[in-house]
Design a protein around this nucleic acid. Structure first.
Lengths: 352, 352
DNA sequence: TTGAAAGCGCTACCAT
DNA sequence: ATGGTAGCGCTTTCAA
């Protein structure tokens, strides 16, 4: 049964002081309190089991010391890891994180943002947002991770450079025909395309999905960069959802292709896991029949079979930078790009 | 740049009404408002971009409509999935979830609980808590998931029955020597034990780790139940941490054992994934050389190689039940047990 | 149908 | 060193 909460008034009465003094003791300021008085207050607090009411404090102070965090899917290991990192970083600074999932639906995302704003969060972290939320009316700092938003401060891994690095590693293994598995908005369709890539071609970037497209395009660009630098023709491109199922589909398409690639660069762990599955189903082997390198580097890839060589996103850095910016409250609209890390395991053909 | 927040006063002034009327309009009650007035208020709200302050509302109402959620590790897919389910269930009821990770540390856990209580959460969900927090002083309903706490309402999957079901399936495949991989507090030690199990033996349950021990013991009990029912001698038991690394260690031990088991029941997905890895490393095959069934059923198991046959935890039910109880505010100390689900895939030897 | 006002718990300024 | 108190934005009773 819920008990009557103990308030600061009760403490003041019990200790025989004013509420102001209780406040001074609890917050260790802004005025000094005589040691004896202080002890009386402390005792009162202990005896009564007083717990300050952060809601009242927030109302008075105008800050909740709470961040809102929205990911497209809390079940996605990448986002789960990122959320964990953000929680840790925030906690270290006395902040707490209101975490919620948008289910990949722009409408839900908008609703959740509104919900968080109403709750007076001190900052908003949007992970790979699908919509382009209008935060201009919000009196709250916001930051987008893994997706560049027009009017919001953004942070993200070096998609292009990271992809380039991963593909280059595959090239160093002697592969000449390297496919790309990358995301697509359409849920259950695999699109395989043999591309002729003109130097410097850039996908158009505009509209609601612009940022998304940009992130995808960047990994694609990195893949092209590496291929071009080696004088190689781009292998097939398969566009499937960023999921295990999508990757599996992609793998099947790739294996069925007339001129089968000898290696694949998957733009997400989940897709790579799916590709692995397709290869196993076909009775083939990784890396012998198809080498694989993935982008992301979640823990799952360390225990897949074979262990995946990955371009690891700098999750801790991303988290720290996001929290830093939020606390600083600066509204830099400039996008920050953080370096990725090539983690060599076995799916690329390396012996380790 | 943070703007001046628009308050209800501004709206009232703009609409030429009192603040009470604005409140009536916003909350659609408790008094009726003339349509014309209502329109003026609505217009004012839109024009000024007014957003109600949930903090003030919470202070006034005495409820934040916010739940606190503490998991041992947000990066663990099981907990991530559970958190997602809880978030969804809570959101459907207009609640929001303050999610945080205790890093498996009892001290951190206590600190996080305190932090959440201070923030006046309307309810607390403790997932597999490591400590036995004193919530008696808290004027807030709490519920423990996956662990039975002495003074807290608890919900959990049918560990024993689920394990029994999983092991029985292995027995039906003809296995006679079935090992058990289960958790242990000690981080990096694998303990293999050949056990003689007397009928009805029950591990002692007391002290801080009692609930934890109980959950482990239950799966162990279920394993024994199935074995005994089939007239089989218990195979080896390996105690390792609930992690992929732990499972791998366990797998190595098992494969090196003199009388190697032909099947394993892993008490968590993560451990099973580790076992899979060990088997692959040894150049052996699942299920031919070692069949595997795991407890949990996170998405990762669907795409492992081979896909894992699992006893699935009823995450959605767990989540719904938890949120229901929290909202009802009942302080039932009785533990609710929810049924698991056997999901047959390939690691057990089934053809699908 | 609408308005005035008290008060939720807290902070911090201004007194003393 | 300590006390009194205004006021954060909101809800709701009581009066008009």
């Amino acid at each position: 049964m819920p008990k009557e909460p103990v308030t600061r008034n009760d403490v003041a009465a019990y200790a025989g002081v004013s509420t102001a003094v209780v406040s001074y003791v609890v917050n260790e300021g802004p005025r000094k309190v005589a040691p004896a008085t202080r002890d009386r207050v402390l005792t009162a607090i202990r005896v009564l089991g007083y717990r300050p009411n952060a809601t009242a404090r927030a109302l008075r102070m105008g800050t909740t010391r709470t961040f809102g965090l929205i990911t497209p899917d809390g079940g996605n290991p990448l986002f789960a890891e990122l959320a964990k990192a953000i929680d840790k970083e925030a906690a270290a600074r006395g902040y707490v994180v209101l975490q919620t999932s948008a289910d990949g639906d722009p409408e839900t995302e908008r609703a959740k943002i509104a919900e968080l704003l109403v709750r007076q969060v001190s900052g908003l972290v949007l992970v790979a947002p699908t919509a382009d939320p209008d935060l201009s009316a919000a009196e709250v700092p916001a930051i987008a991770i893994n997706r560049v938003l027009p009017k919001v401060s953004s942070i993200r891994p070096a998609y292009r450079e990271g992809a380039r690095q991963g593909v280059r590693h595959l090239i160093e293994h002697g592969h000449r025909r390297i496919a790309l598995v990358i995301g697509d908005a359409s849920p259950n369709r695999a699109v395989v395309a043999e591309r002729d890539v003109a130097a410097g071609e850039v996908l158009p970037v505009r509209g609601v999905q612009a940022g998304h497209r940009a992130a995808r395009a960047e990994r694609e660009l990195g893949w092209e960069d590496a291929l071009r630098a080696a004088g190689l023709a781009p292998g097939p491109v398969v566009r499937v959802p960023f999921s295990r199922a999508g990757g599996r589909l992609a793998g099947e398409k790739l294996l069925a292709a007339t001129e089968r690639p000898t290696a694949v660069f998957a733009s997400s762990d989940l897709q790579a896991i799916g590709v692995l599955r397709a290869v196993h189903e076909a009775g083939l082997r990784v890396p012998e029949d198809l080498a694989v390198v993935a982008f992301d580097g979640t823990p799952e890839t360390e225990y897949s079979w074979p262990p995946l060589t990955v371009v690891r996103q700098p999750l801790e850095l991303l988290a720290r930078e996001a929290v830093d910016r939020l606390i600083a409250g600066e509204q830099t609209v400039e996008a920050l790009t953080l370096p990725t890390d090539l983690v060599v395991r076995r799916s690329c053909g390396c012996p380790n």
